[in-house]
Write a protein that binds this DNA or RNA. Structure first.
Length: 372
RNA sequence: GGUAGGGUGCCCGAGCGGCCAAAGGGGGCGGACUGUAAAUCCGCUGGCGGAAUGCCUACGGUGGUUCGAAACCACCCCUUACCA
């Protein structure tokens, strides 16, 4: 129950329009996947996600393993039923936690982490990651990888991609769940050579899709672009390609024109909770005092239900009072904004107008010149 | 009327002889956020000055003690609790 078809290839760039068929529905690509780490896209009803035409969200193996734990998920017959989301779910392997959590010990067989709950040791291995993701019952599982910190030297990265390769092999062996596909993750830091090597290693294992990991972790935009361009040559065209953790319009455009089909990011939801709105003219911080009396929607071009109904001044007030509703409204708006943006990207590929769409974004200031 | 406390920056509140332009909150102002240990985190918040171990103004008021006071003393004003 997994199929990827290319519906249209851009004549201008490597961008493509595709259709991904998964056990819980079909998705048109390029697609943005909102992040719902703890079995919830924070501040959103699943009904609202459906209103926004979200076809797939992320969940996280590591977090859900800690809480509520696999026994609970099992007793609710998997993650879909637990969180009442009947569309697709991609679960992250827990590999990113290796990068983001301090006090870890990377070993050949896996990673030792101290539990944030009680300090006890957790040994995350490819086997455990697969066991968790199979229990969660996600439509797409991710191989357990090592997302290397940008400060690490090339020698470390070289060793690291061998680990990621070995772990990927193990993940392939352990994953045998019906109705769950498995994607491999390419690493290699900021070295074009190591990226090539990692891509060849991972592709040799024949996954159902391929992800680019370890980007947008603090490096400059030109570096991200350079690596993306370099690595995509070694990723099969007939498979879905996913860049992990990317979600600004800049990077989305850049990813799509390099032939990427999927991306996820916490940014729209997190920024929504933190008071920043995404608009066609850049982001705005609604906590700023200058918005107190503004009786206009966040973005006059936006036709989401938040912008149709509520003013900037009202949302500003909700944030100043730290009211939950403000976070809900901005999360909704930001997701709408980004999903709508990606929909326009798809339309532009369909009409073979990707480059003029890109130029339009540049002219508006939604994406910036220096990035390109 | 009696007894026991209090009065500190926009607000609450610590400080009880020098290291005090004064802790910590709140509020205000600004910012960050990219496979979410994130409804989180980081600056700034008396005035002047580019800056200083610099100057000015400030801990209810007025005097005083002291080399030095938000802190100690005297009186005054205001206030809280309890008792009558």
């Amino acid at each position: 129950m997994f199929k990827y078809e290319i519906l249209k290839k851009s004549k201008e760039t490597k961008a493509r329009l595709g259709k991904l068929s998964l056990p819980h529905g079909e998705i048109f690509t390029p697609v943005f996947m909102p992040v719902g780490t703890n079995a919830t896209v924070k501040a959103m009803w699943t009904d609202d996600l459906k209103d926004l035409d979200v076809g797939i969200i992320l969940g996280n193996a590591f977090h859900l393993y800690l809480r509520p734990g696999l026994e609970v998920i099992d007793s609710f017959n998997g993650l879909h039923n637990f969180m009442k989301w009947d569309r697709s779910i991609l679960t992250d392997s827990g590999g990113f936690q290796v990068f983001s959590i301090r006090n870890k010990k990377v070993e050949e067989e896996g990673v030792k982490i101290k539990s944030p709950l009680d300090g006890s040791e957790i040994f995350m291995t490819p086997e455990l990651s697969m066991k968790i993701q199979m229990a969660l019952g996600s439509d797409i599982a991710m191989a357990f990888d090592e997302c290397v910190h940008p400060d690490m030297d090339e020698k470390y990265v070289e060793e690291s991609i061998e680990r990621t390769y070995n772990w990927a092999k193990e993940c392939k062996n352990y994953n045998n769940k019906e109705n769950q596909s498995l994607f491999g993750i390419i690493q290699g830091g900021f070295s074009q050579e190591l990226r090539k090597k990692s891509a060849e290693q991972i592709v040799s294992l024949d996954f159902e899709g391929y992800a680019i990991g370890g980007l947008s972790v603090g490096e400059s935009f030109p570096v991200t672009r350079k690596i993306l361009d370099a690595v995509m040559k070694y990723v099969p065209e007939d498979k879905p390609r996913y860049i992990m953790g990317i979600g600004t319009p800049d990077l989305i455009i850049s990813a799509v024109e390099n032939g990427i089909d999927m991306f996820d990011c916490v940014l729209p939801t997190r920024m929504g909770r933190h008071g920043t709105a995404l608009t066609n003219y850049g982001k705005i911080n609604l906590k700023a005092g200058k918005y107190k009396f503004i009786n206009k929607p966040i973005d006059e071009e936006c036709n989401c239900k938040v912008c149709k109904k509520y003013s900037i001044g009202y949302i500003h007030h909700l944030f100043k009072r730290d009211e939950i509703f403000g976070k809900m409204l901005l999360t909704y708006h930001n997701l709408h904004f980004l999903l709508d943006f990606v929909k326009k990207v798809r339309d532009s590929i369909y009409k073979d107008e990707f480059l003029s769409f890109k130029k339009e974004c540049l002219d508006k200031g939604l994406i910036t010149l220096e990035s390109f």
